[in-house]
Amino acid sequence: MAVTKIRKVSSTTLLVLLALSVLIFILFFAGGSGVDAKGNKDYTFTGILLYWTYFLFIATVVATVLFAGRSIATNKSKDAVGRKSNLISTVVLVVSLVAGYFIGSGEAIKGLNEASQAYNTAGWLKVTDMWLYSTYVLFVVTLGAVVWGGVSNRLLGK
């Protein structure tokens, strides 16, 4: 019974977030735009799209850290591989975020329109680079795990 309820809640959450994301994406492109003084296209709803993206990213990071931390703290079973895997995943996420922030460039981007200048600060640029680098690292790690899982299953015959 509990598994069905969990699956229903997670499916509903996914569908709601997906529907909102699609609506915001459509609003961004169909909501109008203008041309600024420099001749750049200025979309009216850029702020909404950026803040929605920030919300989704922060919610993902918080959920990942909380659920991984809870799993590590409450997993009293003999499954050492599962505990180690959870711990490694959390450490890779945190290290990629911290390293991405310090590697990120705070140099202002030239040629942006006036509406984008609010986000063209060293802090926002470093945070954006942090998120991008973390996404790249986690994508490569996930891809590597999928490939390694397939190769090891074939080689070990499990």
Rank of each mutant, 00 (worst) to 15 (best):
A115P: 13
G149S: 03
S21N: 12
L155A: 13
V151E: 03
S152R: 02
V16T: 01
S10A: 02
I109D: 11
L112Q: 05
L156S: 11
S21P: 10
F29E: 15
S77Y: 01
I6K: 05
I72Q: 06
A108N: 02
R83P: 08
E114V: 15
V95A: 03
V81L: 00
F28A: 10
T60K: 10
T46V: 09
Y133H: 15
A30M: 13
G111H: 10
V22F: 10
T46N: 05
A80T: 02
T12H: 01
N86C: 00
K126E: 11
S71Q: 14
V91S: 04
F102M: 09
T44G: 07
L50N: 08
T128S: 12
V147Q: 04
S134A: 00
I72T: 03
S105H: 12
A30R: 12
N153K: 02
L27W: 12
K110D: 14
A73L: 09
F55M: 07
E114S: 06
I109L: 13
S21E: 11
N40C: 02
A145C: 00
N113P: 07
F57N: 15
I72G: 03
L66S: 08
S105I: 11
L27E: 15
F45M: 11
L97M: 07
V22L: 14
G157Q: 09
A63Q: 15
L20V: 01
V22I: 06
T4Y: 15
I48R: 12
K110Q: 12
D36G: 08
K38I: 15
Y133V: 13
F45E: 09
F55G: 08
M130N: 09
F45Q: 15
V61P: 08
K84C: 12
K76R: 11
I24N: 08
K158E: 10
G47C: 15
F25Y: 06
L125N: 10
N120I: 06
T12M: 02
V22Y: 09
G111W: 06
T128R: 09
Y43P: 01
A99Y: 15
L87P: 01
L112E: 03
L87N: 01
L132Q: 15
G150R: 05
L14D: 02
M130C: 08
G47W: 13
L112W: 05
L50T: 09
A19Y: 04
N86Q: 01
A30K: 10
L97E: 03
A145R: 01
L138Q: 04
G149L: 06
V16C: 01
V3Q: 04
G31V: 12
S11K: 12
D129I: 07
V65E: 05
G32D: 02
V9W: 05
T60S: 14
V147K: 04
T46H: 07
T142C: 07
A63D: 05
S71F: 13
L138V: 03
